[in-house]
Design a protein around this nucleic acid. Structure first.
Length: 258
DNA sequence: TCAGTTGTTTATAT
DNA sequence: AATATAAACAACTG
């Protein structure tokens, strides 16, 4: 599920259950740990204390009083806390044993993974050239990051180097609320449309973050996309389905004309 | 058996 | 230099 709202939910989970706790022991599958050996990872973290986690885009950065752990959730990642879910799941790929429980990283498809960083410089190197976080980005910065780009608005919004955190669902939802066709060229958007898009993107994030996911509400198109014959919740037109930026895209041809 | 999946990277083409 | 596209990654579900 992981787009910005989901990872924000994971940040809250990590903060609630892991912040201020000592790592007594840990485990990580060798194929999910992308830049270190499990032995070195476990040794470096043992007896370290987790501090407040932070999120940038779809990354969760979990510092200790020494090194940091970076988590990316791909399309099927999740976190769980052993007190709420006692049994380990077969797709749990890493876990951290604390004094009062175990926090676990689950990832069925193994897209994404776990990274290790000795210090802030290595954290930055792992994250790569990410754009500014999409949540609470000012309209000026939003417009500034998008302007001058030549491709479609959907591709630009999903490009993590432009803005960090938006994904297929949040982008489809934002464009639908702003009544902008996903295939429109960025350069073709008027100032008024850019303003509306910024407002609606922030609305989608604001309404999704508390529940830690893009809500499947009937009044949003995310709720419609899984149904066999999806219709626009606003005007009841049959939704169009196409591919933009390599992702399945739903839009309303009436509300979002091309 | 086949298509599809909320993400990213890489190779290749434009 | 930017963009676009497809494939690959991996493991399911319907």
């Amino acid at each position: 599920m992981p787009e910005l709202p989901d990872v924000e939910g994971y940040r809250r989970i990590w903060n609630r259950f892991a912040s201020g706790k000592i790592v007594r022991d840990s485990h990580v599958d060798s194929d999910i740990l992308r830049n270190a050996s499990p032995r070195a990872f476990v040794t470096a973290l043992r007896d370290r204390c987790f501090e407040e986690p932070r999120r940038h885009g779809k990354w969760l950065i979990c510092p200790t009083d020494g090194p940091s752990v970076l988590l990316h959730f791909g399309m099927t990642g999740d976190l769980s806390w052993s007190v709420e879910e006692p049994e380990r799941h077969r797709h749990d790929r890493a876990w951290f044993i604390l004094d009062d429980g175990e926090i676990r990283y689950r990832n069925m498809r193994k897209l994404g993974g776990v990274w290790f960083a000795h210090d802030e410089r290595e954290v930055t190197a792992v994250l790569g050239p990410l754009g500014p976080d999409a949540w609470k980005l000012s309209r000026q910065d939003f417009v500034g990051r998008l302007s001058g780009r030549r491709g479609s608005i959907k591709s630009a919004l999903m490009n993590q180097k432009v803005l960090a955190g938006l994904g297929n669902l949040t982008v489809d939802e934002s464009l639908w609320f702003a009544r902008i066709n996903p295939t429109r060229a960025v350069a073709s958007l008027t100032d008024a449309e850019m303003k509306k898009l910024h407002t609606q993107t922030q609305k989608v994030l604001r309404d999704s973050i508390p529940t830690g996911r893009v809500p499947g509400k009937a009044s949003w198109i995310t709720g419609a996309r899984s149904s066999p014959d999806p219709i626009c919740p606003r005007c009841k037109t049959k939704l169009s389905r196409t591919t933009v930026g390599g992702r399945t895209t739903y839009f309303c041809s009436k509300c979002q004309p091309g």
